[in-house]
Amino acid sequence: MAQQTINTISANELLAYALRLKNTNHRMVAISCTTVENGIEMSYSFDGGNDFINLRFIAGPEDEIESISSIYPYSFLYENEIKELFGVNITGITPDYKDKLYKISVKTPFNMKEGDK
């Protein structure tokens, strides 16, 4: 099994890290979220064949997180999902489905935004 590393970064370094991984031919595997006390813990997972790298930071309810869809185009699906289900404020997703990807009429319990969907 490939070695798993978790790099804790700050949210504004995300794009720089993602670009560096893209240049070393890493494949994005997934973006995962975990609800923690002060927001949502985001893990961006990348696979480079022999290594498995996770970028980790915490997104607060007020934070704006920039989308990595300009670097990894297929991240749009993950980012739309996270935005809708977890209420993380991700900006600049192309394409942005504007809360229309998931057809769920109830608010998800892990959504950190106030009020109804």
């Binding site: 595997v29 997934a30 995962s32 975990t34 609800t35 185009p73 297929y74």
Partner: peptide, 26 residues
């Protein structure tokens, strides 16, 4: 991909599944 986070109690903090169909949608 399965991501499991545990806190030492009987109940886990988080289980996340990223399934292949999701990755193939784009």
């Amino acid at each position: 991909l399965y991501y499991v986070k545990a806190n030492g109690t009987k109940f886990l903090d988080r289980v996340r599944v990223r399934t292949p169909t999701f990755a193939n949608i784009p």
